[in-house]
């Protein structure tokens, strides 16, 4: 629990932050709350020579709605997200996820940008961001670029970001009428990482049908896993309990989840089906 020596910077502007990354390259790590980085440094699992802390950048800490888009600053905390009336009403799945990240101490300091860029295979946000069709904005020496969530996560603990890029904003389209979403997580204790987490974003169509379904899992692969076969089943007829169960069964096919001390692969497959069904039901019950 004792980190190696490192140099610490807390730049006052984004330009300065990008400059520090350019200067130190792979030796530098960004800190955006530090709830994953610091424990890893204390266990000497990572030992960056330079830590660039983003806490002084107020332009990255906001939540607002611009026209048809909810914009969230990368430094918005989990607490800010799950207590935001805007997020709760327009993007309930995101509020669900923010509410179950770690414990209250983590939620007070940890941020959505930090968690997304850390890209743990069993983190809560990645599945939700993919399900909600989010885009991540990143700034680097060559300016800003926009990255769809589905392309952002490339492997566990790995994203498509360059070492000199910083996630600044997360943009999520405001869902249309009839849209509803939920995120449901299975973990050993309330405060743990997901064994399986399921984000379900549904849109109600005519006659009790689900016109659109996006169902994405966390904890079962290196990146968020979208279960398209299950989505097709959900959209194929009136969405009743039987159809939800069928979608759950379909979600289990072709999964290749990891085993760890909390749960083996077979367990993750089994509960994926259950949690897909339950997450869909939870979303569908929301009006």
């Amino acid at each position: 629990m004792i980190p190696r020596a490192f140099e610490y910077f807390d730049p006052a502007t984004l330009e300065e932050a990008v400059g520090l990354l350019e200067q130190h390259g792979e030796d530098a790590k960004l800190m955006a709350g530090g709830q994953s980085l610091l424990p890893m440094m204390k266990l000497r699992m990572v030992s960056p020579a330079v830590v660039v802390d983003l806490w002084r950048l107020p332009e990255l800490d906001y939540i607002r709605r611009d026209d048809g888009v909810v914009r969230v600053g990368a430094m918005a905390t989990h607490y800010a997200l799950h207590s935001s009336p805007l997020i709760r009403t327009t993007l309930p799945a995101l509020a669900d996820a923010a509410r179950v990240v770690g414990d209250p101490l983590v939620r007070n300091l940890g941020t959505i940008g930090g968690s997304a860029a850390h890209a743990a295979y069993n983190a809560d946000y990645p599945a939700v961001l993919v399900a909600l069709n989010a885009e991540l904005l990143a700034v680097g020496p060559d300016g800003k670029r926009s990255i769809p969530a589905v392309d952002f996560f490339t492997d566990t603990f790995t994203t498509c970001l360059e070492p000199t890029e910083i996630v600044t904003d997360i943009l999520i389209p405001v869902p249309g009428s009839g849209a509803r979403s939920a995120y449901l997580k299975l973990s050993r204790r309330g405060t743990d990482f997901a064994i399986v987490g399921v984000a379900a974003a549904l849109t109600e169509g005519e006659g009790g049908h689900c016109a659109d379904a996006r169902v994405v899992l966390t904890g079962v692969g290196d990146v968020p896993v979208r279960v398209t076969e299950a989505e097709e089943i959900l959209q194929a007829g009136p969405l009743d309990a039987e159809r939800m169960a069928e979608a759950g069964e379909a979600a289990k096919r072709n999964l290749d989840p990891p085993s760890d001390v909390q749960a083996d692969a077979q367990y993750r497959v089994d509960v994926s089906g259950v949690y897909v069904r339950r997450a869909v039901a939870a979303a569908w019950q929301r009006s």
């Binding site: 424990p39 309330g190 990482f193």
Partner: peptide, 28 residues
Amino acid sequence: LLEEMVYDEDGQLLTTSFMDYLIPTATD
């Protein structure tokens, strides 16, 4: 229900932090 010291077959302890060795919390 929660706590277990898990070793792999090479004798490495896999539960070396409170993230892996789960002590009960009030919510449990």
